[in-house]
Design a protein around this nucleic acid. Structure first.
Length: 294
DNA sequence: AGACGTACCTGACCGC
DNA sequence: TGCGGTCAGGTACGTC
């Protein structure tokens, strides 16, 4: 399959964003898959265009521009970070809360388009991020494990390194709410505010239960639940892009299938009890008082 | 060490 | 219609 035969269907219209609001691990995984398809023939970076020099932090614009001429070899994901591996080093990127990548149609430029990457295959990638919580910076590919942003990250939730025993060992000393614990990227990566509520609902554990009060069975159930909600969301994202003709990016997120998140006051999908909501660890939290035990 | 609070940022939404 | 206030979230950092 040559480049044109796959770009045509993938040539995204202006409304076809490569990401949705509030990206968590499944969304980032989906973005990675989409970017990989666009970068499948390893195009060269012909030009960077920075419409501003800072996102949350200042971008190393000069270092990044030195990567002009590099061939993009691969895009990978670690936690919610995207890693572009190129022949001139790495680029580490994070979507923050409102970041997205898209392939613009012609000269379609919008407010909050901060970075344009012009590629040798004729396509451009545009990074769009209204809230500018994102990250885009160079990274030493030889020393990924020493990188400040990556070195303390916990296990990938969908890998075999994330399982009941080490998870239980890690949380049994933690006095904080279990929801706060699973959102701690040192405990497990990729679980943000939305899937934290969803996983706890599936595992029938109250979000305010102290982490050190879970028993091994509950820890094990929670591990399974985290894997399940994230896998399901990835499948939903994957299926939505596998048939690109029916992709509706404007729909945003995978919110149509949430059981508790953002459903405060509505009926529990299992027992019809009204969903409770409160702030836990500074973030909005949703649970069913009847299904989830403290 | 771990727990906790807060800053960062803008758009959407609400009440008046 | 407009305007001010509040909320949303991932990550980093300061403080105790």
């Amino acid at each position: 399959m040559d480049w044109k035969s796959i770009t045509r269907p993938l040539a995204l219209s202006p409304l076809d964003e490569l990401s949705r609001p509030m990206p968590e691990l499944p969304e980032v995984e989906t973005v990675k898959t989409q970017l990989s398809q666009i970068l499948i023939h390893q195009p060269v970076i012909e030009k960077f265009q920075f419409n501003r020099k800072d996102l949350r932090d200042p971008m190393p614009v000069n270092e990044l521009k030195k990567m002009t001429g590099a061939k993009i070899l691969e895009v990978q994901r670690r936690a919610k970070y995207l890693l572009f591996r190129t022949t001139k080093g790495g680029i580490l990127s994070h979507l923050g809360m409102s970041g997205s990548w898209r392939v613009p149609d012609g000269n379609d430029v919008r407010v909050h388009d901060h970075i344009l990457v012009h590629l040798s295959n004729g396509a451009s990638l545009v990074y769009h991020d209204p809230r500018r919580f994102g990250i885009f910076e160079t990274i030493d590919l030889e020393k990924l494990d020493e990188n400040k942003r990556l070195r303390d990250l916990g296990p990938e939730p969908l890998s075999e390194t994330f399982h009941a025993d080490p998870f239980y060992a890690k949380i049994k000393t933690r006095k904080t709410a279990i929801k706060t614990a699973i959102m701690d990227q040192k405990v497990v990566v990729g679980v943000g505010n939305i899937y934290a509520s969803e996983a706890l609902f599936l595992a029938k554990i109250h979000p305010q239960k102290k982490a050190n009060r879970l028993n091994i069975k509950q820890a094990s159930d929670l591990v399974s639940a985290i894997k399940k909600v994230l896998s399901r969301a990835i499948e939903a994202g994957g299926s939505s892009i596998s048939d690109f003709r029916h992709t509706d990016f404007s729909m945003g997120y995978f919110q149509n299938q949430f059981s508790v998140y953002d459903r405060g006051g509505l009926e529990c999908v299992v027992c019809a009890t009204k969903i409770k909501t409160a702030v836990v660890g500074g973030r909005s939290t949703f649970w069913c008082q009847s299904c989830q035990k403290k």
